[in-house]
């Protein structure tokens, strides 16, 4: 290993905590973010409901105290908005965040319109797949772009490098969001529907495991969202990502010790820990959930491709 050389030349990169996708109780969320404020190696935290507007009211009262605590701990706070906006009520929520002067992560084009060109982050639910789209959004005052989860290394290289006039963020840990819908699949799995859902999504704090008819665990359902069964883990690939010009590395909250997860990633970014060793540490934190990295390597999303580096 040419460790010293790397430390000098490589940009370190910032670690972010993506929005919580799951429906945890307000108290659990508050305690979770307090711990992040106190113990995690995280630079930016995205707060806010992305999946279902019905859940929004539960955490509202804690939002000010949580963001204050995070900011006091020196962390940047960004408000994430809904991934699929359809009703007038949802539009006014999006507009309210945009007008309140928060830094907003736009996850639906609705937010872009509400922002009227104020600086913002483009979330992974807005499709930025090529240079023209990136450049157009940057002109519209996007200061950071979180790339779609589907993107392979080659495309990330093109979008992060080549004089991108914006920060680029890539999700490197957690269940990958694969689709958003109007329908609530969590409710359907309980033979209920979205309008009378009883908030059954709260029963599965890390997503509802979904198997094929051949008993292969394949997806995780989280309300209206469908996610990968495995956690995406880009640890062995971090050095490559850094060299491509990716500036922010997103950890997506799961029901595991996220503070520990953040330190694992921090250490690899700082070249203080070998990726292979870090992978073993991470496995101890995440228990039995398999790791995946297929999209990055251009193959099936649910696949795990061993790094040949």
């Amino acid at each position: 290993m040419t460790e010293n050389q790397n430390t000098q030349n490589s940009p370190a990169g910032k670690i972010t905590l993506g929005p919580l996708f799951f429906h945890w109780t307000a108290e659990k969320r508050r305690d979770f973010y307090f711990r992040i404020a106190d113990e995690a190696a995280i630079d930016s935290v995205y707060l806010g409901e992305v999946v279902c507007s019905k859940r929004e009211i539960f955490f509202k009262e804690f939002l000010p105290v949580v963001s204050e605590r995070l900011q006091k701990a020196g962390k940047e706070v960004i408000v994430s908005t809904l991934a699929l906006v359809t009703s007038k009520r949802e539009m006014s929520t999006v507009s309210a965040y945009a007008d309140a002067g928060f830094m907003v992560e736009a996850n639906d084009v609705a937010s872009l319109q509400a922002l009227h060109g104020r600086p913002h982050v483009i979330g992974p639910f807005i499709n930025v797949f090529n240079e023209s789209t990136r450049d157009y959004l940057v002109k519209n005052n996007a200061t950071r772009i979180v790339l779609p989860v589907e993107m392979a290394a080659e495309s990330v290289d093109r979008l992060a490098g080549g004089g991108a006039a914006t920060e680029i963020e890539v999700m490197v840990f957690g269940r990958q969001p694969l689709s958003v819908a109007m329908r609530c699949y969590h409710a359907r799995a309980h033979e209920l529907n979205k309008d009378s859902c009883q908030f059954v999504c709260g029963l599965d704090q890390d997503g509802l495991q979904t198997n094929t008819v051949d008993q292969q665990p394949i997806l995780a359902v989280n309300g209206t969202q469908t996610m990968s069964h495995g956690y995406v883990v880009l640890l062995q690939e971090l050095a490559k990502l850094q060299n491509m010009g990716v500036s922010h590395f997103r950890l997506s909250p799961q029901d595991v010790d996220m503070a520990r997860v953040s330190h694992v990633y921090r250490n690899v970014l700082d070249r203080k820990c070998d990726p292979a060793e870090a992978l073993e540490t991470l496995k101890a934190v995440t228990d039995t959930v398999p790791f995946i990295n297929g999209f990055w390597h251009g193959s099936e999303g649910f696949a795990w491709v061993e790094n040949r580096a």
């Binding site: 309980h190 033979e191 209920l192 009378s196 009883q198 059954v200 029963l203």
Partner: peptide, 17 residues
Amino acid sequence: LKFRLAKFEVRGKRMDA
């Protein structure tokens, strides 16, 4: 009926949890 049953089931699960 299934709908009502589902609601009971959810309530039961929540109590277990």
